[in-house]
Nucleic acid binder design. Structure first.
Lengths: 193, 193
DNA sequence: CCTTGTTGTAATCAACTGAACACAAGTCAC
DNA sequence: GTGACTTGTGTTCAGTTGATTACAACAAGG
């Protein structure tokens, strides 16, 4: 049920999501959703909290240099971010949470979650504030492009493809395939050799 | 009325905004809002379109090197962005638009608007794709922090202040004052000399 | 058997919300 | 002054939505 909620909240945001839509996605009744979590607010709080925890866990794991040496922390963080993209819903749910700063209930939750990630990057992973800023900025740009569904139009909008490739570099194909299901432009020619 | 709509949509997003809330903010009746613009969808389309136009106009103006020489395009663009922050609602309305990629009506409007800004930076202002990416990323980070209302807690959360200062540098004080109305931490000591 | 608790649904309700309608007041042309 | 048009409001309505309640199926324990 939380998985379904994550996907639906990620697509439509908090106010745009009905408990019925989550119920349909989860394959249960709307009444059951509401009774299980108490309210729509509580459901979103739990969904968003889980998404934040997952992001932090993935970053923490990327910080541990247990993988084959030779790559920098930044590179490991970048690959970790691509893994997060695969988990459809998490990044977009958090992005929607970040637009709720004015909300009575979720405002502080959103700020705490954001600052918690910043502290994780700075204190545990050891990035400088400038490095953390750059990483966060790139992440916000990726989240925005995901919210725009820019990968969907990569075949019809060459500029979208250029920008995505510029941001994601080697991970472009993987992300486009993950988020659209179809084969990205030009990959066939490159792979068929 | 569009000014009021921009503020309200920027705070609560498209689905979170009622036509009545816009009407109250504009000082007219709800019926008048709906009849003037035809529908809530049309109102948001016009509000978001105006916000996009304003952003593009400000960037275009920053590109023209009519101001005193010696500063780079990047610096002029940065100052232009701070000007946009002052216009409460514009950046946040556009940010909400950018989360509507899945929407039947606004999805393509959002993608077109975003790509239009990218093309403006690249073709008219002459940034390389990498420079444009960096500028957009920083912009998305600023938008996110505005949506979080991070400047509001700058006095109680030192890390928020650090991050904001890291992103905005010289413009920190100006932005915090603009978005909160109160005096940012430490500005009194620095100004009272 | 029977009580208790869990899992789940159908039906219903009250509040909210976008939209429509009728109508009033003013303005302007002629 | 009178018909037409604009500006604007009060009222009402139908659809949506979060939440509640009553109820069914089922397992477990004693």
């Amino acid at each position: 049920m939380l998985d379904a909620a994550s996907i639906v909240f990620g697509e439509r945001g908090y106010t745009g999501t009905t408990t019925d839509a989550v119920a349909v996605a989860a394959g249960v009744s709307q009444a059951y959703i509401v009774r299980t979590f108490g309210s729509k607010e509580a459901l979103f709080a739990e969904t968003a909290g889980r998404a934040l925890s997952r992001i932090e866990a993935v970053f923490r794991q990327a910080a541990a240099p247990d993988s084959s040496a030779g790559d920098t922390v930044q590179e490991r963080l970048g690959r970790a971010y691509v893994d997060l993209v695969a988990d459809r819903g998490i990044l977009l749910t958090v992005m929607h949470l970040f637009t709720l700063g004015h909300h009575d209930t979720f405002g502080s939750l959103a700020r705490d979650g954001f600052l918690s990630i910043y502290r994780l990057l700075r204190d545990e992973i050891g990035l400088t504030p400038q490095e953390a800023e750059g990483f966060l900025a790139k992440g916000m740009l990726i989240n925005t492009m995901l919210g725009l569904r820019l990968p969907d139009v990569v075949t019809t909008e060459p500029d979208a493809g250029e920008l995505i490739a510029c941001v994601l570099e080697d991970a472009t194909e993987e992300v486009v395939t993950l988020t659209t299901g179809h084969r990205p432009l030009g990959s066939a020619a490159r792979n068929s050799n």
